[in-house]
Each structure stands twice: as structure tokens, then as C-alpha cells.
């Protein structure tokens, strides 16, 4: 969370001076401050990315431009002071980090970064826990039962022999 806040701070500063700073923004991932909020951390070709911002204040219209996604409009959403819009990542888009820029009057401009993946999974799958077999306990319990069975057997034998004698 610390990294995310620092990155969001950087993103705000960079956005405020109109610089896109993709490297810094990419390090923090999509920021979730009032500058710009991008819904999909890992977009894939063909998927829709939703963008929202508080940076336009009471304005009711904003213009968005997404690298690889094209232009889109931002309109007031359910919450006051927030403009939202969306764009689609074209199929065939190469994996990588892309910039999205939002503009609204009088001269507000904020940028953010979204990531496009291959759409395929990556890396290993965490699909096992190791059976909780406590081998030590099993062994101990088993040994006790065997010892008990042996002792019980011995008692029976003794009684049988004693009975045969009387």
C-alpha cells in the first residue's frame, strides 16, 4: 500500500505538469487517487478498460485518449465530481504499458498507464498444499495400538493357559 500511495503521488505530480512519465506510473500500476482511476490492472486485447477521474471538478465533460485504444468521452457517473469513460483494447495489441490521457476545461490534463497482457496465464500454478499427514502422530498412534494389541493378546493367552490348568 505504501508503494501504491507513493506512486499515486508521483502520478499526480507528473499528470499536473502534463508529463506522461510512463516509467514511473508503470512502476506504481494504475493509480487510485483523484487524478485518474483505471479499472483494469491487466487488460487483454479485446477487453474494455474503464477510466474515471475527479480532476475535472464540476465539469460535466472530458475527453480521453488511450494509446492503442483511441479516443473516448468522459461523462458524469453515479458519483458527483467523478467523470467516467471507457475504451476497448483492440485485439492484436502487443503486450506492454500504454498511456491514457484525460483532458477537461479549462486546462486540466491527467495521464495514467494501463497494462496490456497477452491474455494467457503466466507462471506456475499453486495447486497443492501437501497433505497434513502428521507422520509422527500416525506412527506414535499406530505403535500404541500395536503394543495394546500385543498386550491384550498376551493377557488372553495367560488366562487361557491359567484356565486350562484349573
Amino acid at each position: 500500500m505504501r508503494i501504491k500511495c507513493a506512486g499515486a503521488g508521483i502520478g499526480l505530480v507528473l499528470g499536473a505538469v502534463g508529463l506522461s512519465g510512463p516509467a514511473a506510473a508503470a512502476a506504481s500500476g494504475p493509480s487510485s487517487d483523484s487524478g485518474i482511476h483505471i479499472s483494469t490492472r491487466h487488460a487483454v486485447p479485446g477487453s474494455t478498460v474503464r477510466v474515471s477521474t475527479r480532476a475535472c471538478g464540476s465539469e460535466t465533460y472530458g475527453k480521453g485518449e488511450a494509446e492503442a485504444g483511441g479516443q473516448f468521452h468522459l461523462f458524469p457517473g453515479a458519483r458527483t465530481g467523478v467523470l467516467t469513460g471507457e475504451f476497448q483494447v483492440p485485439s492484436g495489441t502487443e503486450p506492454g504499458a500504454y498511456t491514457v490521457t484525460l483532458k477537461c476545461p479549462p486546462r486540466v490534463k491527467v495521464t495514467g498507464t494501463y497494462l496490456v497482457g497477452t491474455g494467457n496465464p503466466s507462471g506456475s500454478v499453486d495447486a497443492g498444499f501437501g497433505t497434513g499427514n502428521d507422520k509422527g502422530t500416525q506412527l506414535a498412534l499406530g505403535a500404541v495400538l500395536l503394543a495394546g494389541a500385543a498386550a491384550g493378546g498376551a493377557i488372553k493367552m495367560r488366562r487361557r493357559l491359567a484356565g486350562a490348568r484349573t
Partner: peptide
Amino acid sequence: TPSTKFLACALLTGLMLVITA
């Protein structure tokens, strides 16, 4: 006095536990 059946159960269970462990 443990019955034979009881002893047989204890023996089998004990063996199974030890073997799987």
C-alpha cells in the same frame, strides 16, 4: 478381558497407521 475381535481391530489399525506413516 479384550475380545479377539477387538484385538484384531487394534492390530489391523495399528499396522495400517504404521505402514502409511
